[in-house]
Nucleic acid binder design. Structure first.
Length: 564
RNA sequence: UGCCCGAUGGUGUAACGGUAGCACAGCAGACUCUGAAUCUGCUUGUCUAGGUUCAAAUCCUAGUCGGGCAACCA
């Protein structure tokens, strides 16, 4: 279910409109920088599934390209084989496509540039700009120094070029143990920016790479690989998150080695933080591995596959990303903003159906048993083109337990002895009595007298129902926030898992109207007066339907009745 | 503490030297065959102190607070 192609944003009019990145790109296009080209890239590391935070970056990267007539590359930033796999590559492609973006021909792997990067490294060595360092990682840290004090030069720093060249080739040939040597850029051990204190460019790592296999035992570091990839691909605007801000001088240094004429530029923006969830891949992986959720696509996860399974339309996620904007301020966005975007789309598009999740039998005493009628129900009052459907109706209905009260509290407009309500699409009912289990005090049945719609009775409430004789028994999964607190990982080292919401998943048996029998996985509906639901893409089968709650409807009554 | 970045209602943002606006959330009301949606109204904000200027959220300086950096991770 992909609601539309790329999002439509305001075209590049004034260079001063929109967020700061849009302004920069617009200005560059206006002044003819990069020959007026706009080439961006989304460079995930295939070591986890994409989440809503990535969606923000994807919308920005692909959005800027689309808006300014450029292109956006999808690139697997796979320079560390220890955690990367093809499973993640496939999932990433699926998710980006699902979000509504198209990279065309421009799908790349960093690993495909390994040979080229190696050549650049050799070149750097020849120019005396890089050397083979023999410091252990412990020594390395000591020599690097601390922010307040300059670092110390490695004893290897002035190794002759020929020796560096020889060593580097032998490193590639596998003559040295992991970590025994590394290639370092020769920049400035006294720089106040730690990243410029002769950063490591290559490390020895005997790990099989999911793409290059055992071809390499030498892998480039992000700070070396990333700018090269951007330069190789002719990227113009390299957009990344704030934590890379201090890497920018190094990015520029590397880029200057290979693309001095028309270098790509890196711009940083704040990553997305959402209330009541965590966004780090490490933590999400942990939730999966420790089976605290059912998988990466658990509908409670902030992953794109989780949201897809939950029933969030991609167009809603894109609208949400446009709403949160792009700034350099580290913010915490209220989940309510996302849910609003989802409701807004679903309200317009989701067909209405009736479902009862806490069933209570209602007997209409003036309708004879065994008699089946049908009533026409509107599919979506927001969209007349969706027409109506026939819904079976009869003497015995299921209604929601919450829609009956033995003794009405203030402002309770629903069913209570003597009170009349409208039955959605099926006339009216006046409550004439009820049966109570003397032992438990539970209401076991409600009785009423039915009136046709033509009676036009004045009522203050409408309740939904399903015909007991025709109802489909289904499983419904009700979701609440994954964590109980707004910032589960606010405490640096306190265990965020202690804040997991034990009630984030509730499974109930409910009844739905027969029209839902045809629900295909992923199909979204509004269960009237309850919320938006979709057929679960993993577990729902025609003979055993399973629905996921996407998001509830706003509920003014819940707020009213809670205090009392 | 060294360097870098940032700060506008409860939240997310806009305003680019000239009336602080929008959305979410909240509250109140209208309407309603969904206590939904829709509509109306309301509450709440420029971190502080100086300076520049006819005029500062915007420019400058200092401070305060917050974030980032100190993996042979990305």
């Amino acid at each position: 279910m992909n609601n539309s192609a790329a999002p439509t944003s305001a075209p590049a009019e004034a260079a001063s409109a929109g967020h700061f990145i849009r302004q920069i790109v617009a200005e560059d296009v206006r002044t003819g920088k990069h020959g007026g080209r706009v080439v961006t890239r989304f460079p995930p590391e295939p070591n986890g599934y994409l989440h809503i935070g990535h969606a923000k970056a994807i919308c920005l990267d692909f959005g800027m390209a689309a808006e300014f007539g450029g292109r956006c590359h999808l690139r697997m930033d796979d320079t560390n084989p220890t955690k990367e796999s093809m499973e993640y590559v496939d999932a990433i492609r699926t998710d980006v496509r699902w979000l509504g973006f198209d990279w065309g021909e421009h799908f790349y792997y960093s690993a495909d540039y390994f040979e080229r990067m190696y050549e650049v490294a050799l070149d750097l060595i020849r120019q005396g700009k890089a050397y083979i360092c023999a410091l252990s990682s412990e020594e390395f840290k000591v020599y690097r120094g601390v922010p307040t004090q300059p670092g110390l030069e490695s004893p290897s720093r002035h190794r002759p070029v020929e020796e560096n060249l020889d060593l580097f080739r032998r490193m590639r040939a596998g003559e040295f143990a992991d970590g025994a040597l590394c290639l370092r850029a020769k920049i400035d051990m006294a720089s106040p920016n730690l990243h410029l204190r002769d950063p490591v460019l290559y490390r020895i790592m005997r790990v099989s790479h999911y793409r290059t296999g055992d071809a390499w035992c030498l892998y480039p570091m992000y700070d070396f690989a990333h700018p090269l990839e951007d330069a190789f691909e002719g990227i113009t605007h390299s957009l990344c998150t704030l934590e890379f801000e201090v890497h920018r001088p190094l990015y520029d240094w590397v880029v200057a080695q290979v693309s001095p004429a028309d270098p790509p530029h890196q711009y940083e923006f704040a990553r997305l933080n959402l209330t009541y969830t965590v966004m780090s891949k490490r933590k999400l992986l942990q939730l999966v591995q420790e089976k605290l959720v059912s998988g990466w696509d658990d509908p409670r996860m902030p992953t794109l596959c989780g949201m897809r399974r939950r029933g969030y339309p991609p167009v809603a996620i894109r609208a949400f990303c446009e709403t949160v904007g792009v700034t350099k301020y580290g913010s915490l966005t209220d989940m309510a903003l996302l849910e609003h975007a989802v409701r807004e789309v679903l309200n317009r598009t989701a067909p209405r159906r009736m479902a009862v999740l806490k069933p209570l039998k209602l007997v209409l005493e003036n309708i004879s048993a065994g008699e089946t009628r049908t009533v026409a129900a509107v599919n979506n009052p927001e969209d007349e083109s969706l027409g109506t459907r026939q819904v079976p109706f009869g003497r015995e209905l299921f209604i929601e337990q919450d829609d009956f009260l033995e003794v009405a509290q203030k402002k309770f407009f629903r069913l209570t002895p003597g009170q009349t309500v409208r039955l959605r699409a099926a006339g009216f009912v006046t409550c004439t009595g009820f049966t109570k289990d003397p032992a438990s005090g539970a209401i076991t049945e409600v009785r009423g007298e039915w009136f046709p719609a033509e009676a036009e009775l004045k009522v203050k409430a409408t309740i939904h129902w399903v015909s007991a004789a025709h109802a489909l028994a289904v499983e419904v999964r009700l979701y609440d926030r994954l964590f109980r607190v707004e910032e589960p990982d606010a405490d640096k080292d306190a265990d965020y898992k202690a804040h997991l919401n034990p009630d984030s998943l509730r499974v109930v048996k409910g009844y739905v109207e027969p029209a839902l029998a045809a629900a295909a996985p992923g199909d979204a509906f509004q269960f009237e007066r309850l919320g938006y639901f979709c057929a679960d893409s993993r577990d729902s089968r025609p003979e055993a339907l399973v629905f996921n709650q996407t998001v509830s409807l706003r509920d003014a009554w819940a707020k009213l009745s809670k205090p009392g």
